[in-house]
């Protein structure tokens, strides 16, 4: 145990996800040894983050204005919506530079065991976005785990009532992996989604 504020700082860092007591101590001592100007900048950002960052009114992505930069960009394809669970997934897809449409962040996945049902996600807002008929395709990019698949199943059932094409991201073998280590479900999916190359 350290005295006063040092221990308080270690305790606060220790509450962050993925940071254990040793890491918290290391970060705290790093800050103690850092130039005061850098610490002041960090402190300023931490102070502002909660007031400056909002969730986009349209898609639910993180934004500094009422709408995010993607929703404001007129060059994006307005007829495509990619549905993801978290704002982190938007960044992952943007890194691919393959998708030029819009996003919709659900804010999680359906997980009845955790008390999260369809009403707890931004599904109603998605349906409102689709109401005017501009969007022709909805890409379901929820996580390829059980909750993500169940959410995609629920959404596809809901969206088939609208005149919109519903697609799901392909799943299969990871690039750079060995076939013998693939589990049965992944390998089965890879067979289902095989493509013609010759």
């Amino acid at each position: 145990m350290y005295e006063g504020i040092v221990q308080e700082l270690i305790d606060e860092f220790g509450r962050l996800p993925g940071i254990g007591p040793k890491s918290a101590q290391r970060i705290a001592f790093h800050i103690l040894q850092t130039e005061s100007v850098d610490v002041a900048r960090l402190s300023e950002i931490l102070g502002q983050i909660r007031t400056r960052v909002h969730f986009c009114e349209i898609c639910g992505n993180v934004a500094e204005q009422e709408t995010c930069s993607i929703c404001r960009d007129p060059r994006r394809n307005q007829t495509l919506i990619c549905v993801v669970e978290e704002a982190k997934d938007v960044v992952a897809i943007e890194r691919t530079r393959e998708f030029r449409g819009l996003y919709h962040v659900l804010g999680g996945a359906i997980s009845p065991i955790d008390g999260i049902g369809p009403d707890d996600l931004r599904i109603r807002q998605l349906m409102q976005r689709l109401a005017d008929g501009t969007v022709v395709e909805v890409i379901l990019a929820t996580d390829p785990n059980l909750e993500g698949e169940a959410t995609a199943t629920y959404l596809s059932r809901l969206l088939t009532t609208l005149k919109v094409k519903v697609t799901r991201l392909a799943s299969g073998l990871p690039v750079g992996g060995d076939l013998e280590y693939a589990d049965e479900i992944t390998l089965g999916r890879a067979f289902e989604g095989r493509t013609v190359i010759g």
Binding site: L146, A150, T153, Y154, R157, D183, E184, I185, G188
Partner: peptide, 16 residues
């Protein structure tokens, strides 16, 4: 894997 029940269950929301 001994029993792969997840895929057919998750394909139907009521089963899930």
């Amino acid at each position: 894997t001994l029993g792969s029940y997840g895929a057919p269950i998750v394909a139907d929301y009521a089963l899930y």
